[in-house]
Design a protein around this nucleic acid. Structure first.
Lengths: 186, 186, 186, 186
DNA sequence: TATGAATGAGTCTTCATTCAT
DNA sequence: CATGAATGAAGACTCATTCAT
């Protein structure tokens, strides 16, 4: 009995993703189960705690986001790579609507999640910042942790397409702030 | 009986202020009524919507913040006035714990709160933006509503002193973004 | 607003009495509320804990049982007063079907019930034991808490008249056990 | 495959024994299966009804308890044999925590169990009573069925070591009651 | 006008039982 | 035959909101 479980697991993950986007991370458990086409018992079997589900979703997409940093770094000039990745991060955060709220909640259950977040994304952004700084595209002194928090904040409440577009504009503005006062090098 | 009503009103305002700080703006209605020493019915009489209560609490300081725009405009060069006021706005938002959460929640219950917020602060910021733009301190096209939302978002989770300092740094960075690409005029 | 509450309170008490007899003290909260013709919220308002409801039902007769100790002590010789009261206690327990079950369940929900039970009946029995012991009618060292538990246990399943008679015989036997080895004094 | 089935059967019996002691006869089915190291499906195959499992366990231990009567009768004086066996009976009942509840539940599925109970234990206790009575260690007229019920009741709620000790003390007290008023014979 | 009692929908969570693998 | 995943009914509890007093 393996295929069933895997199918349920995947369905739950997918359903939770969608429901969290639509209703936030505090959405009723029953809604997620219903959307996945399984009983609530099945949800509880796979994810005893709500945070288990959140973490499962978060890790998956978070990895993809972190990996994108390398791709962008390889395919774009330093300054553009940074800007692009920040937009990519916006997509990640807005898609995971409410997950940053969980991250910031201070609840100790999310401690591992915070650690994982820092562990994966901070180095990725740090790398992009270093390259952009070395190229003189941005001024020095940017702190990756702060920028990630800030960008998350700028995505706050971005549920619809307009909110997403606004978040992208504001993050672009933030990146422009990094560019302000930079001394381009040859 | 008019004095009673006024007494209830004041007690509710004071109680809500304290409860919001302690438990956030989503605190149970009953807790607020209990702290005020009145029945929940009385609370609903004075504040039919939760947002009415929130507005009542924040109105005074929100007004003060809006008025500060004029002061800064009179006492500083356009670009600096804008930057200073944005920091002033950070102070307001971080002091009103949970306010930005309510603003961004998207919950229609808070619609009146958003309306009042926009009605007071948008014009104030618009004026500062216009002057800074006219002076060539910032590039054109900035949207006050977006900036207010963004700055609120940057204050997300800023409970302690460090969070406040970070919020100020990030808002300063955002303002630098506005400066980036501007063409200074004589 | 007093008549409503009283009406609900009484209805709940009456309903709970009937439901407990029919389905035991673990009957669904909703059943009791339904039988009383009120919402579950009303039940929780009056009786936040299930044990509060049980206590409310049993309190009156429990008090009467405790008071009987004084009466018996005044009207009978120490040894007989003890024996009589233990039979009185049997009547109380057998009449309150399910009470001892709740008392013995070990469920922390019933802790307040146990406390009240101990608070009322332990001192009453202790007094009777002290007097009987002082008179040399029973041997020393009897523990009131144990005896109450034991007598409750002996009433287990005593629903009909025969069960009641048997319970009385067994409790009498237990009291005889206390008498065994006593050294009568003048 | 026959050995597998037998192994599962035995494991389930042993596991159920332990789980019933720890959590009572209403313990989750899953716990028993888990402790036995088998799936719940296997449990249901061997014991379609919960009562089937209870009965299977009960009979085994009940036989051992009944046989102990002969052993005690052979190795101790009549009065002591009775007292000892009653304590042995306490051990049996407390070990089978909650089984007496099932026995008293009135559920017709347990009728054969009740019959078997009476058929095995009543004669055993009757024999001990007869011998003790003949020796003048106890007064005449004791009814084995009542005593068994009573002793079961005294074990009510005896989950921990202290409860067990108390049950033993109370049963000893009950036996002392039988001794009270006896006329020792040479 | 003030009160707070009443309502009941909404949520979480557990677990006996079935059945696909 | 064994497994354990899936199911979903059942029950406890909360709290925003209404309305009788």
């Amino acid at each position: 009995v393996r295929a069933d479980a895997q199918r349920s697991f995947d369905a739950l993950l997918q359903a939770a993703k969608e429901v969290f986007v639509a209703s936030g991370v505090d959405a009723p458990v029953r809604d997620i189960a219903a959307k996945a086409g399984v009983g609530v018992g099945t949800l509880y079997r796979h994810f005893p705690q709500r945070s288990d589900l959140i973490i499962a979703i978060f890790r998956h997409e978070l990895d993809a986001c972190a990996l994108a940093a390398d791709t962008f770094a390889a395919e774009h000039p330093p300054g553009e790579a940074l800007a692009h990745w920040m937009q990519r991060y916006v997509d990640f955060v807005t898609a995971k609507h409410g997950l940053s709220a969980a991250l910031h909640s201070g609840d100790p259950v999310y401690a591992p999640l915070r650690d994982y977040f820092d562990q994966r994304l901070k180095p990725a952004l740090q790398m992009l910042l270093d390259r952009a700084e070395a190229a003189g595209s941005i001024r020095p002194g940017a702190e990756p942790g702060e920028l990630l928090s800030a960008a998350s904040g700028l995505c706050w409440g971005a549920r619809d397409g307009e909110g997403w577009a606004q978040a992208r504009r504001m993050v672009a503005l933030l990146v422009d702030g990094l560019r302000y006062g930079a001394e381009p090098r040859p």
